[in-house]
Design a protein around this nucleic acid. Structure first.
Lengths: 239, 239
DNA sequence: TAGATTGTTAATCGATTAACAATC
DNA sequence: TAGATTGTTAATCGATTAACAATC
């Protein structure tokens, strides 16, 4: 038996999770809205690195070790985790599988969110066939389009539904997230329709920024082109 | 003739561009490496909004007006533009087409960068058919794959090339950017090959982070899943 | 000229890093 | 116990905002 395994066994979750007597998280855990955007943006990256460690069979990791891997400081890692109450143990470090599970929970991987893809163009098709959703605990429940030639065809095991049925579908299936891969002209209307049908999250690939001021509806605007442009910027040296 | 048009005519570039006698930019313009990441990340967004204004036929815009549109402060806009020397005129504001052109230049849109897509899976196909490149002055020169069944087929007007020929192609066509939409296992090897073939920019869609420490090779790691996870985080309310 | 709006400096705010006491 | 490493506070750093003189 390796040393790590011993340590792994010795640590149980009640010790690791810094709970108060009433079972609530430690005082150091901030309320969700108090966690800064800068921290939230780093969480998915922690998720990815921890997943790697987990799949590599590593049981424990220290903030220093993780920091070296990720190219950030150990201080930042500890500060970040402490926004959510702290998941480590002094003198030991962090238990990888426990930490991975905690980060996953924070990111909603365990929530079983349900999604639809709206718009079956090239990007919609590409996403439909992707493992991205399964990896993150998001269930892709259906895909939709307005084009009669596309409706009824099959993509990656999904039959393309008619957009006119999307409200009913979202209500019945209790859809949380809609992924917008539609032409920009249709974006705002469609967003409003979906929000009205109970969808709480919009993952928007349209090249207009959606900013529904509907309370309770969150929008994540993706601009892949921005990332390309930043790369192009970097290519330009001093003149 | 509308007032804006008069103003537009009155402003010529030599007035607007704050040049020293020797033609170099004003002292206020920082060298490229002195511009913070935070500023660079905002540039593509300015590019998008200015493009909208331009297409809408607007001739001039003030920092206050643009700030309202974009949901940021006018101070930030002026600070950001001043990293590159300042493109406005006191009492007038900014000339939209001039500012758009300047931001475009900074972002390399006028550099005529040449790109290849490496990996013709779903995402590679989706990108091949996209107008993203043309809009940003990037020329898509070729697409490649390793799969014999895919090689030689046509996607959006491009014939899929054989990966074994990619080095030669990149050298001959003087390719600047490679877009990696390949399986993760092939990512590091392929990145090294491309860098060796003179490619200076890697737009990496692989889910491992590439961090070639080759000087002069820039990498932009795209993690679409991170954006989905941030949306999922936002969906989780207080418990 | 008077009004407007920039460019730029100074003040504030927030995020990162360093340090160390707590503790496993 | 001694060593290690966290959780957390204090110090530093950088980014954003406010303010205003410069000037078109």
């Amino acid at each position: 038996m390796k040393k790590d395994e011993v340590s792994f066994k010795k640590i149980d979750e009640n010790t690791l999770l810094d709970k108060n007597d009433d079972g609530s998280l430690a005082d150091s855990a901030r309320s969700r809205s108090d966690v800064s955007k800068a921290v939230v943006k780093r969480l998915p990256r922690y998720f990815r690195y921890l997943r790697e460690l987990l799949l590599a069979g590593k049981n424990r990791v220290s903030s220093g070790e993780l920091a070296r891997m990720m190219g950030i400081t150990a201080s930042q890692i500890r500060q970040d985790f402490n926004c959510f109450g702290g998941f480590g143990q002094q003198g030991y470090g962090y238990n990888v599988s426990y930490l991975y599970r905690k980060i996953s929970e924070i990111l909603g991987v365990t929530m079983g969110y349900r999604a639809v893809i709206v718009g079956c163009g090239n990007l919609g098709r590409a996403l439909t066939g992707s493992v991205m959703f399964a990896k993150r605990g998001v269930e892709l429940c259906g895909i939709f389009d307005v084009n009669p030639k596309v409706i009824g065809t099959e993509i990656a095991g999904y039959t393309v539904g008619d957009m006119k049925d999307i409200e009913t579908f979202c209500r019945e299936k209790d859809i949380d997230i809609a992924i917008l891969t539609i032409p920009r002209d249709a974006a705002l209307d469609t967003a409003a329709r979906l929000a009205h049908a109970g969808v709480r999250g919009l993952w928007n690939f349209t090249n207009i920024e959606i900013n529904l001021s509907l309370p309770g509806v969150k929008v994540e605007n993706v601009h892949m082109g921005d990332s390309l442009m930043m790369l192009c910027y970097e290519l330009g040296g001093e003149e």
